[in-house]
């Protein structure tokens, strides 16, 4: 058992030693995971890292080649999707094109044998919950991307799943809508007290929405924890680079910058650029470096520099810091504790 996964109650979802191959490809290669009831859980990773396959294993679209899957204590491996108390919001929404919005939402109730008037009432309530009240008669083709997303959400929630699975739920939306839906999803999850498991390749989305994040790489989970822990203390070189950006240091370089003698990460925004003659903060290590590149990125300016020992460092400084040119020599301050050991690296 991992130290980070010790919820007290029966986990909403538990995976133990789950393996899934496709031919020679080990898409999911020994995943252990426990998701607590009511948790908003993100599975983050690049494409091909196994996060989507993991979600499909929980939904029942894939069966594991080895290992064990439980939903609220019930073993589900071997069960088809229609026998599992989980529902999915698909990446392409998968709305039935031949049914109206109301009939789409009522579909799960219909196959359960619930009568027309009752299911229309429940579907209407579910649509009102996602702010689409009165849209029952429309066709999916007549809706915008954001509205389709809401219909998909209502359709999955109306059958009262114990766990809601979301596959890249915001991937197809434009930036403005995505931010809106982020807070709406979060609010909905809080109001319903439901367990949400969502897959994303967008680290910003995972950090801002999730209670806990599992970072996937090459079919395995490389780190699980609350967003702050994953971001502030990346366990491996991969996490440091995938979740945000980082200066990755070997043992010798870490020591030179005031860290322990092990591989460490150093977030660019922790590094300070000192004005000429200004003192650094207490306990900070000061280094002189020659600027190799400056790029303006809106909120910050990204300064790449090389120290006299040949170490390349990237610092993110407030965008208002002007007058830095490539070729200039600057003084950088690395505060105490900014250099963080990566526990998964030797």
């Amino acid at each position: 058992m991992h130290a980070h996964a010790a919820p007290l109650a029966t986990p909403a979802v538990r995976l133990a030693g789950v393996v899934r191959h496709f031919g020679a490809v080990r898409a999911v290669d020994g995943v252990d995971l426990a998701i607590a009831p009511g948790e908003f859980f993100a599975m983050l990773g690049p494409s091909g890292s196994g996060k989507t396959t993991c979600l499909r294993l929980i939904a029942g679209f894939e069966q594991p080649d080895a290992g064990h899957i439980e939903i609220f204590g019930d073993t589900v491996e071997g069960l088809p999707p229609y026998r599992r108390a989980v529902n999915t919001v698909f990446q392409d929404y998968a709305l039935f094109p031949h049914l109206s919005v109301g009939d789409n939402v009522a579909y799960g109730l219909r196959v359960r044998g619930i009568g027309r008037s009752e299911r229309d009432r429940l579907a209407g309530e579910a649509l009102a919950m996602v702010k689409l009240g009165g849209m029952e008669a429309r066709r999916p083709a007549q809706l915008s991307g954001g509205q389709r997303q809401r219909v998909a959400l209502a359709r999955a929630l109306v059958v009262r799943p114990k766990v809601l699975l979301l596959d890249e739920p915001l991937g197809a939306l434009d930036l403005k809508l995505r931010e809106e839906m982020q807070s709406e999803l979060k609010g909905l999850q809080r109001a319903l007290g439901l367990t949400f498991v969502f897959v994303t390749h967008d680290q910003g989305e995972a950090l801002s929405m999730a209670d806990r994040v599992a970072v996937f790489n090459e079919g395995r989970i490389v780190q699980v924890g609350p967003p702050e822990a994953v971001y502030e203390r990346p366990a491996t070189r991969f996490v440091a680079g995938f979740v945000g950006s980082a200066n990755v240091l070997d043992a010798r370089q870490s020591q030179a910058l005031g860290g322990p003698a092990r591989p460490c990460s150093l977030r660019p925004e922790k590094i300070l650029l000192l004005a000429p003659g200004a003192p650094g903060p207490d306990g900070a290590v000061l280094v002189a470096a020659e600027v190799t590149e400056v790029s303006y990125q809106g909120p910050v300016r990204r300064v790449s520099a090389r120290t006299s020992e040949g170490l390349a460092l990237t610092a993110a400084v407030p965008a208002g810091t002007t007058g830095i040119m490539a070729g200039a020599t600057v003084r950088l301050a690395v505060p105490k504790d900014a250099v963080r050991p990566m526990e998964g690296e030797e």
Partner: peptide, 18 residues
Amino acid sequence: LSPSLIEASMDLGADAFQ
């Protein structure tokens, strides 16, 4: 026909015949 339509149907509780 998008394969996710069939998966969505099964996900919502419909067996193969439904």
